[in-house]
């Protein structure tokens, strides 16, 4: 991708320099990237997963990144896309939470408010044609209500029973449409984990930018819980039967 070039107005030019300076450039794409985030509603709250890989193009550059972030006691954030922009966003949200703490007014910032704040930042940056190159999934329990939302670099927002980013949208969502949509209230934690692991397994089989080392997180009335990294059992014997794959 070519960088977007913008010329600064003359009032912002440094004195003593010709007006026609080197134009300001902006990165026109993500550099170090994370792949899919998958999340859905179940009986007790929200469950979410993301693997631990931060790729540099096709290079598996950082293999123990945490792409799940606990914003506050009730809110979980999953990030795909540029990991640098994700770190910036984490700092920004930490600032917001610190400010809320400093207010000391007994109010908590609920999941819906965090989601709105995040969405406004994303929309503001896309409107400035300087987007944060991410797709975020926000999950939480706000006043007893489960909230699961999505926001991306365009500021596009939506809520649904099942949400995924990137390749997960192509592969995990069709599976979740069958197994979650319309029956989120019936799904136990045990079943939710099984469904999520199935999605992540298929994603690992098919997504070249995925890693079989992932974290799972849940938000319930008890709060946010992010797991340690774990691996899924895989079976590559199918590969033998695919014409042109191996033998």
């Amino acid at each position: 991708m070519d960088p977007v070039t913008l010329e600064l107005p003359h009032t912002l030019q440094r004195p003593g320099h010709a007006v026609a300076q080197e134009p300001m450039t902006r990165p026109a794409g993500p550099i170090v990237t994370g792949t899919s985030v998958v999340a859905f509603k179940y009986r007790d709250g929200i469950i979410m997963a993301a693997d631990c890989l931060a790729s540099y193009g096709s290079l598996a550059r950082f293999r123990s990144e945490n792409r799940l972030f606990k914003v506050n006691e009730t809110t979980l954030l999953g990030a795909a896309g540029d990991m640098g922009d994700f770190q910036y966003m984490k700092h920004k949200l930490e600032d917001v939470m610190t400010h809320e703490y400093d207010m000391d007014d007994g109010q908590r910032l609920g999941t819906k408010s965090v989601y709105k704040c995040l969405s406004n930042i994303m929309y503001g940056r896309r409107t400035a044609i300087n987007p944060l190159w991410n797709a975020y999934v926000v999950g939480g329990v706000d006043g007893g209500e489960r909230v699961l939302g999505y926001v991306d670099l365009y500021g596009t927002t939506y809520t649904a029973d099942a949400v995924a980013t990137g390749f997960g949208k192509q592969i995990a969502i069709p599976m979740l449409r069958r197994r979650v949509e319309g029956r989120a209230d019936e799904i136990s934690e045990e079943e939710a984990v099984a469904i999520l692991d199935d999605c992540m397994r298929v994603l690992f089989y098919r997504d070249c930018r995925a890693l079989n080392k992932l974290r799972r997180a849940k938000v319930t009335a008890q709060g946010v819980e992010i797991s340690e990294p774990y691996s899924l059992e895989t079976n590559w014997t199918y590969a033998e039967s695919i014409v042109g794959y191996g033998a």
Partner: peptide, 23 residues
């Protein structure tokens, strides 16, 4: 607003080379 020189990004660009703010 961040300023940066264009990085030789390992972007897997498939043809399109200009970002549109609209969907």
């Amino acid at each position: 607003m961040r300023t940066a020189t264009a990085v030789a990004a390992p972007i897997e660009a498939h043809g399109h080379n200009h970002w549109s703010p609209y969907v």
